[in-house]
Amino acid sequence: MTQPTGTSRKTRAANRLFGRNSRQGNWWAALLIIVMTTILLIATTDDFATPRNASNLLAQAMPLIIVAIGQMIVIVLAGMDLSVGSVMSLTTAILALDGAPIVLIPLVFLAAAAIGLVNGIAIVRLNVHPIIATLSMQFIVLGIAQLLRPVAGGSVPDVVVNVVTGAFLGIPAPVFWAVAVVAIGWKIVHGSRFGLHLFAIGGGVASGQSDTAHNFGLKDRRNIVLAYILSALFAALAGFFIAGRIASGDPGVGSQFALDSITAVAIGGTQLSGGVGGLHGTILGAILMALLANGMNLANLSAFLQGAIKGVILLLVVALQSRKKMGL
């Protein structure tokens, strides 16, 4: 039992610093780094503060923003979804099949929903640890994607490309995407009873009272399954966006996104132990990741080294979050 009255001033200060006693977590650290990085990049490079780079940046950040929102939904529940990257790959593979867009596009989201459903059922009904369930699903889905499209290639329907790379009223499509995704994400996470219940269920797990949410009469199992379905759907949406950008199918396109999305969520202040987090933190985290990638590109850093640096960032962020449980 935590006793706020009994905690020392030092712990309370530390709590505040790491956003432990706020439900949004510590999102302003991400904001601070974004501001600092932006200033640094504007000051040191000539190409950064151009409209072209800004629009580029948004398009680069968009898939990660989308997939990170889905990832956040399950992380708030004290879960995790390692299969999102494979779902993205599968999405591009399906979109690059021969077929009418009217068939392919619904198929993409149906497949994603089915994958999320299997994840959720394995977790709540078959008692499998979320990480193990989604880890194995990562391989199964990747295999299916590789069966459909062994190597990168093919072409996606024009409508997909236009929706992603076109412009409307002179405003580039990614701007509309950003508005829509943020609106949908906000509605789910902060603008619905479902969203509030996510925090309740995750908070119960994190504070060792996993029965509490159930005792309040919440449908915890159904909400968990729904969360994994949403996570997969967001991944499919991110895959759709990438498919539009590269205009082809690629089974390797999602490989980095499982860890990148977890990094973005964690860096945005969402606690991996559940119950604490927020949409704005997650979006800031994803933007920060894209900004760093952009900056490293402008600094001509090797792509391989960039991968290593992202790994270091992930380790730092998760090592700073405190957790009671040891293991998986």
Binding site: L196, N215, V276
Partner: peptide, 27 residues
């Protein structure tokens, strides 16, 4: 013993499971 969720606000704890909803299903 504790039957409140620490990461929810007082209001959210009091109404958990029976939140009043306004326009468009927003609590």
């Amino acid at each position: 013993e504790l039957s409140l969720l620490p990461n929810l606000s007082i209001a959210e704890n009091l109404f958990l499971g029976r939140e009043p909803v306004g326009r468009m299903g927003i609590p």
